[in-house]
């Protein structure tokens, strides 16, 4: 039995978007494009539920993008998802921005090798490699890299690859230089793809920041001074 009623929340980029599933009906909404997550998220969810004549208590699942991506956005998205799940008893499903991009690209007909690239700010991007065939398969772990290093690696290896995500939009000139690379316009991790993953086992969700582990290691050295 699949999930019938689910809400998806996406705040890992400067955009804020949500989607709602109720049986055969589904709708995605872009609430804002410019870092106004705090302001638009809760009212946007309320309005979408109302248009579906649903109440929060009707939700069975809340699918939330747990990153990596815009820290200030993720903070709002996750807090909202936790609060909603808590209040309604809906199961919480965490997905990553990178896999949402991969599933979105797959849905849009992209096949073969895909690099999901999310803007990591500070001159870095969050990346993950996928193989898109009948299914979407991850071929690497999420990583933090410099755009130039990603470009050099693919230019050297020469294989055909599609790039998508807001990191590609930000460093478009770099990525356009990969000889066998194709830039796909998909930029924001799509919430409809998140609804497709609503059937996953719900459980505790933690944000994926990616820079944390390194940072913790560094921090410990302070006491050695």
């Amino acid at each position: 039995m699949g999930v019938v009623r689910a809400l998806a929340i996406e705040t890992a980029t400067t955009a804020c978007s949500i989607a709602l599933l109720d049986g055969n009906r589904r709708e995605a909404r872009l609430l804002a494009a410019d870092r106004r997550h705090v302001e638009v998220l809760a009212p946007g969810i309320a309005a979408l539920l109302e248009d579906f004549a649903l109440r929060a208590g009707d939700l069975e699942r809340i699918v939330v993008d747990r990153g990596p991506g815009l820290f200030t956005g993720l903070r709002v998205g996750l807090a909202t998802a936790f609060a909603l799940a808590d209040a309604t008893g809906a199961g919480l499903v965490g997905v990553t921005s990178l896999e949402l991009l991969a599933h979105g690209a797959h849905e849009a007909g992209v096949r073969g090798r895909l690099m999901a690239v999310v803007d990591g700010r500070r001159g870095e991007v969050f990346t993950q490699r996928f193989e898109l065939a009948d299914e979407v398969t991850a071929e690497s772990e999420p990583a933090v890299e410099r755009p130039r290093d990603v470009v050099i690696a693919w230019a050297t290896n020469g294989a055909a690859v599609t790039f998508c995500g807001d990191g590609v939009a930000r460093y478009e000139r770099d990525f356009a230089a990969v000889p066998n690379g194709t830039l796909h316009p998909l930029s924001v991790p799509p919430t409809l793809a998140a609804l497709d993953l609503a059937g996953r086992e719900p459980g505790p969700v933690a944000p994926l920041y990616l820079r944390e582990a390194d940072a913790v290691a560094n921090f410990v050295t302070r006491d050695a001074r």
Binding site: G123, R146, E212, A215, N218, F219, R222
Partner: peptide, 14 residues
């Protein structure tokens, strides 16, 4: 101040 203790949080472009 003491920013190098948390350097990975800030990325490479510092």
């Amino acid at each position: 101040e003491w920013g190098e203790l948390a350097a990975p949080v800030f990325g490479a472009d510092v």
